[in-house]
Computed example of a mutant assay.
Amino acid sequence: MLSLVIVLLAVYGLIIFLWQLNRKFHNSTTNLLPNLIVIVGHASQWIEWFVRQLSLQMYTQGQDVQDVFIVDLSASDETAMIISKLSIRFPFVTYIPSSTARCWTDVSNLLETSQRDQTLVVKINDEGDMRQVLRMLSHFEV
């Protein structure tokens, strides 16, 4: 009985492995996911969840997350510390401390230096906005 369970788990693992390989090699090399510039303020409560959810969501769609710039308008809270720790685990995250006065200058500089054709700029104020952005990004497909 135990050997049957082990065989079934091995077959399941092999199927998942082959499915992932197929998806990786048969997707086109052009990723339609845009650069993402996220403007936040006082986001320490939910920014980690957002980055992790974004990474997981794009992985399940077979996409690699490219360049997520987080422009923080409130350098006074612990958002900077959280994002710097996240950028070690998720190399696609770049933290940009900013202010309300400099925000659009910083975004403009990012747009000028972007190497991708598309860039999505969003301002997230709370968890509801965050969920809407994740829902919107789920429509970008390879």
Rank of each mutant, 00 (worst) to 15 (best):
L36N: 02
D72T: 01
F90L: 03
V93T: 01
I37W: 03
I96H: 06
L120N: 09
T29L: 11
N27C: 02
Y59P: 00
I96S: 06
E78R: 10
D106S: 13
P34Q: 11
D126G: 08
S55P: 00
Q57V: 05
D129M: 09
V38T: 03
R52K: 14
W104C: 11
D106A: 09
L32C: 11
E78F: 09
P91C: 05
M81G: 08
M81H: 08
I124T: 05
S87Q: 11
Q61E: 10
R102F: 12
P97G: 07
P97M: 09
L73V: 01
L36P: 00
L33Q: 02
D106R: 12
N125R: 12
E127D: 07
I124M: 14
M130I: 01
Q61A: 09
E78T: 04
T60V: 06
D126I: 06
S44A: 08
E127H: 10
Y59R: 15
F69D: 00
R89E: 13
D72Y: 02
R102V: 10
A80M: 02
L111Q: 15
E127I: 11
S108H: 15
T100I: 13
C103R: 11
E48Q: 07
I37Q: 08
Q45R: 13
N27F: 12
T30V: 12
V65C: 04
I82Q: 00
V71S: 01
I124S: 01
I124F: 12
Q61P: 01
T29K: 14
L111K: 15
L32E: 10
I88M: 08
I83P: 00
N27E: 09
L110M: 12
Y59T: 02
R89T: 09
D77C: 05
T119Y: 08
S28P: 01
C103E: 13
S84Y: 05
Q66E: 06
S74E: 06
H42E: 11
T94N: 07
S44E: 08
I70H: 00
I82F: 00
S98T: 04
R102D: 15
F69W: 10
